[in-house]
Computed example of a mutant assay.
Amino acid sequence: MPPVIDPGFDPGFPKTHTFTFGSYNNLVLHEVPLGAPKPNEVLVKTHAVSLQFRDLMIANQTYPFGATWNLVPCSDMAGEIISVGADVTQWKVGDRVSASFMLDKLHDEQTPEIINSALGGASQGVLTEYRTFPAHSLVAFPAHFTYEEASTLPVAALTAYNAFVGGFSPVKAGDTILVLGTGGVSMFALQFAVTSGAICIVLSSSDEKLKVAMKLGAKHAINYKTTPTWDEEVLKLTKGVGVDRVIEVAGNATLARSIASVKINGSIDIIGAVGGGSDSPIDIVLPSITKGFYLRGIYVGSLVQFKTMNKLIEANPETTHPVIDKVFDFTEAKAAFKYFETQAHVGKVVIKF
């Protein structure tokens, strides 16, 4: 059986973005030939891509894992299947899908080979009009989502979801969650907290961003610019007990205060390093002994988790809706990166095709 092609499909020479490392300003838009998918692949027309802090790190050569030279950047996409390979039975032309961040991470297992299947790094990314994917790497996204909304799911949403349901114990109603920042992962973490019945404290440097968080259901908001000892404020809000879980996206710059904020036998989910480094040594050993807290590093999630997360989103459409700050056109990719770099956004920045 030959690949199934939509009769009206004539892509010609589709456009793609690539860059050499050093800066996102090295992005180049050019045309490439397009071939039919292999027997176990599908060809997807990209409709939207969302940006991650990882994309900036890769461009600036500060990302700790390897990346392909002359890289097609970005990992988060949503698109439409326009062709399926001869051996593919689970997908058909017209299906709306997102790709898993790590194409081969189907379950919790994570190996060097699986890590190297991560899009926009060791594997070519998704900032391109068309791309083939292994059939096993795709997930149908919630039917009520637009392509722009669905493009926010593969990393930001799934990372937050993994923090809530994976690891040592799932978040439950009545737990207190401290969410650092108001970026993509943080906003999904807030929404999943609200859906779970947890109490959420949100940290930001902007009162305007905190207003958005409060509208989404945050119980408390702390501006770390006006309250630099925000860990002390967290302890006041929790009557000296501390929070059950910290969603730590800033890294070493805030880790010491996150440790001070977590309760005995609580947990800290290490998700990112948007805050950069820290000039002060961080004492992890003694606090971890005296508090007995869990420290868990999270590198997105699995395809199975992606599917179960989508069920949660479909069951709670009002409280799990992606927060999109700004949408750029495909030809404005550099401008999208530049805006994203300012960290002025709340939620996600999306590139629309």
Rank of each mutant, 00 (worst) to 15 (best):
residue 108 D to R: 10
residue 195 T to P: 04
residue 352 K to E: 14
residue 25 N to Q: 15
residue 318 E to S: 11
residue 227 T to E: 13
residue 115 I to W: 10
residue 286 L to Q: 14
residue 118 A to K: 07
residue 238 T to C: 08
residue 343 Q to M: 15
residue 334 K to M: 09
residue 155 V to I: 12
residue 243 V to Y: 07
residue 201 I to G: 03
residue 136 H to E: 13
residue 72 V to E: 05
residue 290 T to A: 14
residue 191 Q to Y: 02
residue 172 K to G: 05
residue 104 D to Y: 11
residue 282 I to W: 03
residue 308 T to R: 13
residue 307 K to Y: 01
residue 330 F to N: 02
residue 28 V to S: 13
residue 115 I to F: 12
residue 124 Q to Y: 09
residue 101 F to E: 00
residue 161 Y to T: 03
residue 11 P to V: 04
residue 27 L to W: 07
residue 282 I to D: 00
residue 107 H to Q: 13
residue 164 F to W: 09
residue 259 I to R: 09
residue 96 R to G: 02
residue 161 Y to W: 14
residue 242 G to M: 03
residue 6 D to T: 02
residue 295 L to F: 11
residue 233 E to G: 03
residue 307 K to M: 12
residue 3 P to F: 10
residue 269 D to C: 13
residue 228 P to N: 09
residue 207 D to T: 09
residue 232 E to Q: 15
residue 212 V to Q: 08
residue 69 W to C: 11
residue 210 L to F: 09
residue 213 A to M: 05
residue 228 P to A: 07
residue 126 V to C: 11
residue 202 V to W: 02
residue 104 D to Q: 13
residue 87 D to V: 05
residue 170 P to H: 07
residue 35 G to I: 02
residue 300 V to I: 13
residue 92 K to G: 10
residue 14 P to N: 03
residue 351 I to N: 06
residue 27 L to E: 03
residue 345 H to T: 07
residue 207 D to A: 14
residue 70 N to A: 10
residue 350 V to Y: 07
residue 201 I to N: 05
residue 298 I to G: 01
residue 42 V to P: 00
residue 273 A to D: 04
residue 51 L to D: 02
residue 79 G to V: 03
residue 167 G to L: 06
residue 262 V to M: 01
residue 326 K to G: 12
residue 48 A to S: 13
residue 148 E to T: 13
residue 67 A to M: 12
residue 98 S to W: 04
residue 344 A to V: 08
residue 40 N to A: 12
residue 271 I to G: 00
residue 121 G to V: 01
residue 293 F to N: 01
residue 279 D to K: 14
